[in-house]
Design a protein around this nucleic acid. Sequence first.
DNA 1: TCAATATTACCCCAATTGGGGTATTGAGCA
DNA 2: TGCTCAATACCCCAATTGGGGTAATATTGA
Lengths: 214, 214
Amino acid sequence: MNIRVAIFEDNKLIRDAYEAILSGTPGFQCTGVFSNCADLDFAIRKSNPDVVLMDIEMPGIDGIEATGFISKNSPEIKILIQTVFEDDERIFAAICAGASGYILKSNGMIKLLAAITEVYNGGSPMSPTIAARVLKLFQRFAPPPTTSSDEYKLSEREKEVLSLMIEGMDFRTIGNKYFISYETVRTHVKKIYKKLHVTSASAAVALAIKKHLV
Amino acid sequence: MNIRVAIFEDNKLIRDAYEAILSGTPGFQCTGVFSNCADLDFAIRKSNPDVVLMDIEMPGIDGIEATGFISKNSPEIKILIQTVFEDDERIFAAICAGASGYILKSNGMIKLLAAITEVYNGGSPMSPTIAARVLKLFQRFAPPPTTSSDEYKLSEREKEVLSLMIEGMDFRTIGNKYFISYETVRTHVKKIYKKLHVTSASAAVALAIKKHLV
DNA sequence: TCAATATTACCCCAATTGGGGTATTGAGCA
DNA sequence: TGCTCAATACCCCAATTGGGGTAATATTGA
């Protein structure tokens, strides 16, 4: 199966080069080439891509706006940002908009193909310089010392039960899911509450989500 | 000029392999090999590295603690985390501790050398899978994106009540907080459930947190 | 090997919750 | 001026939850 790639790039030379490379490489398939995001919705539906190769700098709707639109409406599509810039603002905006990868145009065609494959497979290729900026941004925005999540030492079963509580299931339904009795679920829940120092499902769920215990 | 590298790794086989590779490759120099972080301060002063290759899983002081210590006391030293694990908690902790790069042990020796060079030059090499997790973590802490919090059209009072439910308060306590009766709180809660299409406090709390309704 | 823990399961009982009503007051709006 | 809706408050009742036990089995760890 080929990886279906749609290209958004305003520079004709680069655009044609990308298209040629993708069309000429086994495993890849260029299903759409666009010089702007004017009719983005149509472009996406028409090209039906697995991966979008997105230039940030474009006239009209820019690549970050377009990224936000695509990731909101078609979250299954991976978006690989391509740019000549590496400033914090754009990186930050692109990530928040839902970009899956962020590489520099200077990286060359072989790396580009590798990056496309990686985003397709769920990874997030980033140039090391980009990654360095992401880490710095991360450290800046990171919340105060969160308690290490297995601080509470929940057992595997307890985590499973807790995760279904987060889905809003009642104890009987949880029991059915795991083929254990209602009373057993209750036993687990009681232990969870003791370990988390809470006395209600709401508080347990809130804590679990906030501290990412599951 | 060689890149001076100190190795912290408890597995002797891996440790020796790293040392051999580094010693045998032009441009690199292994200035210290340590099986634990017992005398970390001394180890760093003695080996005076440009780059520390740090294993996360180590007996005694683990790699993350050690990373925090080094980056605090010698911020000019780059720390490249090496691990077999790729769970969010460790990645997050390592980044916050000041790691410059985070790669998987399965990545192989050639990539290891490339990664060392990249951290030395100020980049942050990351496996694409690691990077994907970092981006997800990032998006989690970044500004509340899509969720138009008034999607569900909760009234102000309802949002207030919901926010206290997230704190794990029971209805009576919530009533006392806002100087309204227990029954009124229940009335609000019922309306909240209808608006959110849930039937339990847990589900309401989970939805509220996930979609940033409050 | 012995102790601790995880997982399973049940009992009892009080408290809370979920869902269905009804009703009054006041604000905002056509 | 009616109409709608938010906010307040109460009633009833069934179901679920929270907290306290006890106990068997299996696995783990020291």
